[in-house]
């Protein structure tokens, strides 16, 4: 799994500069990260890694790191 591809997805959707996002970043830190952006991130990650998340798996994902671990679990 390529972590930088995940970060790139976030940067694209949230319109962030490189380095602005850390693994600990969450919607509290990023104004643009609202519920709609969250859905867009999920859809983009599903397309990028050709996976389909189950709703119960994504309900508790809150930080960039959570997303990295989630993608990791689907691509193993």
């Amino acid at each position: 799994m390529n972590v930088s591809s995940i970060i790139e997805v976030f940067n694209d959707i949230l319109d962030l500069e490189e380095g602005q996002l850390t693994p600990e970043s969450s919607p509290i830190d990023i104004d643009e990260w609202d519920s709609m952006a969250n859905v867009n991130i999920i859809v983009a990650l599903e397309e990028e890694f050709e996976i389909k998340f189950k709703l119960e798996d994504i309900l508790d994902v809150k930080t960039v790191n959570d997303f990295i671990n989630l993608v990791d679990s689907y691509t193993k």
Partner: peptide, 10 residues
């Protein structure tokens, strides 16, 4: 907006 849980609405 900007809660720690972006999926609270869902």
């Amino acid at each position: 907006p900007n809660l720690s849980d972006p999926f609270l609405g869902v």
